[in-house]
């Protein structure tokens, strides 16, 4: 049986679960609004300088971007499986799936790191640090500001997500979850799907213009 006790201010487990779920969904709304600001800047600048966006996006590495997309989609799948396993009292497999998800996150960040170091090397940097000669458009630095802000903020979210996955892995191992209580796994799952979803928007918006 579970070691979990329902916090005393809740009447029952269902109420506690529903409260957590509503809380996480509201939190996701705030996340979307946070990224929303950047999307607004993106839309505005792309509307103003469409050909610059096209030209600048050619200098992003589509292959790496696509690989990362695949990695994240896979990780979303394993995450969903992990939640389902946790629900069915199968901690063993839940733990394995969580580990795969975590490793996917790691791969994502590694590829991101390779992309970043390449950009930094070439001088494809945001704003005043931009020093790349092959793009003539004077506003091109703005594109790379957007690129770094959007993928950077997203990368930060991946790291936070990995931290959360690590935390639920530890708790799963300890045997905290069973069919009656697995809220943290499920909430981490929802969060991870959002991180994935944001990337699914970022990838075509930044890499596949044209």
């Amino acid at each position: 049986m579970t070691k979990h006790t329902i916090p005393s201010h809740f009447d029952d487990a269902k109420q506690a679960y529903e409260a957590s779920k509503l809380g996480v969904w509201l939190f996701l709304v705030t996340e979307i609004l946070l990224f929303g600001g950047l999307f607004v800047i993106y839309i505005m600048n792309r509307g103003l300088y469409p050909e610059m966006f096209h030209e600048a996006s050619l200098h992003l590495n589509k292959v790496m971007g696509a690989m990362n997309t695949v990695v994240l989609i896979c990780s979303s799948f394993t995450m969903a499986m992990a939640v389902s396993r946790a629900k069915h009292n199968d901690s063993q497999r839940a733990l394995k799936l969580l580990l795969i998800t975590f490793i996917c996150g790691l791969i994502f960040m590694t590829i991101k790191y390779m992309e970043y170091s390449h950009k930094i090397h070439e001088g494809l940097l945001p704003g005043i640090h931009f020093s790349f000669d092959e793009i003539s458009h004077p506003k091109a630095p703005l594109f790379f500001s957007l690129y770094f802000m959007m993928t950077g903020l997203h990368g930060l979210h991946v790291l936070v997500g990995m931290g959360l996955i690590f935390w639920v892995m530890v708790r799963t191992r300890r045997g905290d979850f069973d069919e009656s209580y697995h809220t943290p796994v499920e909430m981490t799952g929802i969060y991870w799907h959002l991180v994935d979803l944001i990337w699914i928007y970022l990838f075509p918006l930044l890499y596949l213009i044209g």
């Binding site: 103003l48 300088y49 050909e51 610059m52 458009h137 004077p138 506003k139």
Partner: peptide, 14 residues
């Protein structure tokens, strides 16, 4: 003058 490519008149090359 500053960003000639921003708003190009129809029918002209950038």
């Amino acid at each position: 003058l500053m960003q000639p490519q921003a708003k190009v008149v129809k029918g002209f090359p950038p």
